[in-house]
């Protein structure tokens, strides 16, 4: 039942340290699979996936690159023209969380975003399934960091258990839609930074585990 009037192609870039689970997130979202034995990424990979929001279909073109610093010059060219950037860390890896700032800057530097046009960042804390004793970053720390950096959407996910993965991508698109409509109204509305997304975060975190039955 595809009552689509238009199909928007959105370019999504997933960034974050090596090993935080970028590829796993992408594969969970696109094919609902989790491969414990997947390889680390070499070069650049991407996958397409349709997502439906409020009756509209969006095709997400998700780009996944290698996280190691060494490959920076080969990675950054792919940022250009992105519509959405997903900043990823692993909740059991404090360093990867600390590096979010570096990733955000690297992206902003190379994405070549049009004037008056923000690229929506969303922050994803992956591996939420790890036992509490292995956790190094709390949800509160994530929210604080986001607040400090003017990022309104964040969510904890687990590519392994499939928790919140669909939600994360949906959130990214919704966030994009919000910015898009704001851009359309050409800056008239400035103060509508409703905490909508954050409420959604909480809602979803509590209710959406295991709901990602795409297919």
């Amino acid at each position: 039942m595809r009552s689509t009037t238009k199909n928007t192609l959105l370019k999504v870039v997933i960034l974050g340290d090596g090993g935080v689970g970028k590829s796993c997130l992408m594969n969970r979202f696109v094919s609902n699979q989790f491969d414990e034995h997947s390889f680390h990424t070499i070069g650049v990979e991407f996958l397409n996936k349709d997502i439906e929001i409020d009756g509209e279909t969006y095709t997400l073109q998700i780009w996944d690159t290698a996280g190691q610093e060494r490959f920076k010059t080969l990675r950054t060219p792919f940022y250009r023209g992105s519509d959405i950037c997903i900043l990823t860390y692993a909740v059991d890896d404090k360093t990867s969380f600390k590096n979010l700032d570096m990733w955000r800057k690297e992206f902003a530097n190379y994405a070549d975003v049009k004037e008056n046009n923000q690229v929506p960042f969303i922050v994803v804390g992956n591996k939420s399934d790890v036992p509490t004793e292995e956790r190094e970053v709390s949800p509160l720390e994530m929210e604080t960091w986001c607040n400090d950096n003017g990022i309104t959407s964040c969510i904890e996910t687990s590519a392994k258990s499939a928790s919140n993965v669909q939600e994360a991508f949906k959130m990214a698109v919704q966030h994009w839609l919000k910015l898009e409509s704001r851009a359309d109204k050409s800056e008239t509305v400035i103060n509508d930074t409703v905490d909508l997304s954050k409420k959604q975060t909480e809602n979803r975190t509590s209710c959406c585990i295991g709901s990602s039955d795409d297919k």
Binding site: T73, L74, T76, P77, F78, R80, G81, Y110, D112
Partner: peptide, 14 residues
């Protein structure tokens, strides 16, 4: 020359 290289790849996305 990294910049030139990046440009050359970026051109794919212009």
């Amino acid at each position: 020359d990294e910049i030139a290289f990046e440009k050359s790849i970026s051109s794919s996305f212009l």
